[in-house]
Amino acid sequence: MAPQSVSEVVAVLSEHGDRAKLLAGGTDIIVQLREGLREADVVVDIKKIAEVTSFKYCDENGLSLGAAVACYNLYEHPQLSKLYGALADSTHIIGGWQIQSRASVGGNLCNASPAADSIPALIALNATAVIAGPSGERSVAVEEFCTGPGRNVLENGELLVSLQIPAQGANCGSAYERFIPRNEMDIAVVGVGSWVKLADDGTIAEAKIGLGAVAATPLVAEAASASLIGKEPTEETFAAAGELAKQIATPISDMRGTDEYRTHLVGVLVKRTLTTAVERAQSS
């Protein structure tokens, strides 16, 4: 079914509970249903609802991104792709361009994969998830949204309506990078999103780093982020932040890499994404 409003969706979800699944781009849920990884009696298409499929930016409130807005809208947007570098980076590598034409950032978040490419970027950019449910609307910081692999904070009857991402002033820059063994068609062995705001003297005023694929959920590297404040943006500073970020990584060993290798990559990617984020801040 394809309801016309958020309240209709809430009603359907409340009625069917776990047996109802939402369809935005469908690039995860259709595969999961087909492979028997998830089951559903009702699949609810949310792409008929304006506030879920639209996005708008203003200098005061930043970006309001409907949960079903497809990836390509971000990286093809001349202004947004510059302002939200980390998000442009990540939406550009989620699947191929066919997938990016359907898959949404909101869906990527709700699917709650520890290796999701958009989540470390959203964390770094300080995004908030706006959730509608039977008892009205609530907001949750993106880093609190995922509760385990494939699990999130959404309660019975709730859906993600939009993501609110703060405005990007001058001297802000962000970047996302993942490591994959090939150059395409792959899932992040480790993914890191970094955001910085530079002070007028060129030192780092604010920073936030998000890590993917190194724990059951994407993480905020708090100590690493804090270590940057007030520092000159140098290779040594970035490397030190990388070392701190490595300390919170608790990755598994699997066919994509050993825990030792993944932990090492956290340091490498923190350094690389900070370098890019600072370059972008300096040129913004």
């Binding site: 063994p181 090939r182 150059n183 395409e184 792959d186 899932i187 699997d254």
Partner: peptide
Amino acid sequence: YFYKDDDTMANASFLDYRMPTMLD
């Protein structure tokens, strides 16, 4: 072929059995 502890294959898909793509 990446084997799990129970000697079953962990990567029986083109996602995790990594053949080169045209970009590689």
